[in-house]
Simulated scan of single mutants.
Amino acid sequence: MFFPHSGGSPASYKEFAACLAGSAHTAAVHYPGRAERYREPSFTSVHTLADEIADRLPAWLGESPALFFGHSLGAAIAYEVVRRVPDQHRMLLVASGHPAPSRLELPPLAGPGGDPDGPLVSLVSALGGDTPEILEHPVLRQMFLPVIRADLTAHAGYRPAPGSVIRCPLIALEGDADPLTNRSDMHAWSKHTLSTFHHHTFPGGHFFINHHIPRITDIMRAAMRQEEAAA
């Protein structure tokens, strides 16, 4: 199951789903306030959203290993959803492009001057991804900025419960030029699981995953095979 980044939607993972076709059933979480759910208010709390997703999980989870992949904001949401599953046997978490929850510190979204969107646009532009064209289009920009602002505001307000951990294997993925993470913050994920921990570094910035989909899906398949063999 894929958990999108701030401003993202299930379409963000269509190439991942294509690479995993035939070896895994894939699904992606669709956050409110965008695409087909644009009429719904955006979520304001990572914890509340995780509660809602976890309540619906039993209908999706089966007997096969369940891997949750979250990038950036999605990593925090995926982590909190896993924490809410009573039986984490045969589950795996892949946390990508996000410091350990205990190390989270996001850049400010507001700044001085008369342009309230300035810092937000600068942050989104610096991180790259698929958004530069959107920011240059007046109508799309007007639609996109409120969504990503709401996501980032909820993200900035997120704090894990003191001493929170999960009980399943955890894999951390990092871009070596990502301005929002560093090696120490990524390795701190190891303190959030009572099971095994692995860390992989890739060339690239915050959206490094878009350039390494085959290798990342290979890591996911290997992790699922290992979990299947251990069952």
Rank of each mutant, 00 (worst) to 15 (best):
S96C: 11
L109M: 13
A172L: 11
T153S: 13
P119W: 14
G111Q: 15
L127P: 00
A161Q: 14
H89L: 09
A76W: 07
Y79D: 00
F69A: 08
V81M: 06
D130E: 12
H89M: 05
A110V: 13
A172I: 14
T153H: 03
P112D: 15
P99W: 01
P108A: 15
P108G: 14
A78E: 04
V85M: 12
A78K: 08
V147C: 06
D117I: 06
H137Q: 09
G129R: 08
F69S: 05
C168V: 03
P112H: 12
H155M: 12
Q142M: 02
L109E: 14
F144S: 02
A76I: 06
L170S: 12
H71V: 08
L93Y: 09
A76K: 00
R167A: 14
L92A: 13
V147E: 00
R90G: 00
L123E: 09
D130A: 11
F68S: 01
L92K: 02
C168R: 03
V81C: 05
P86R: 10
P138Q: 10
P162T: 04
V147H: 02
D151W: 02
A66K: 03
L73Y: 01
M91A: 05
I166D: 03
L173C: 09
L140F: 09
A172R: 08
P101M: 10
D130W: 07
A100I: 13
P160V: 13
P107T: 09
S64I: 00
H98S: 13
V124Q: 07
R141Y: 01
G62C: 02
H98G: 03
P86I: 06
I148C: 07
V94C: 12
R90N: 12
L152S: 08
P119V: 08
I166N: 05
Y158G: 14
M143R: 03
R84D: 06
H137W: 01
L104T: 12
G111A: 15
G70H: 10
E136S: 02
S125F: 04
P160W: 10
A156N: 06
V124T: 10
V165T: 14
P169F: 05
A150C: 12
A95D: 14
V124E: 07
H89S: 13
E105P: 03
P132F: 01
M143E: 05
E63Q: 09
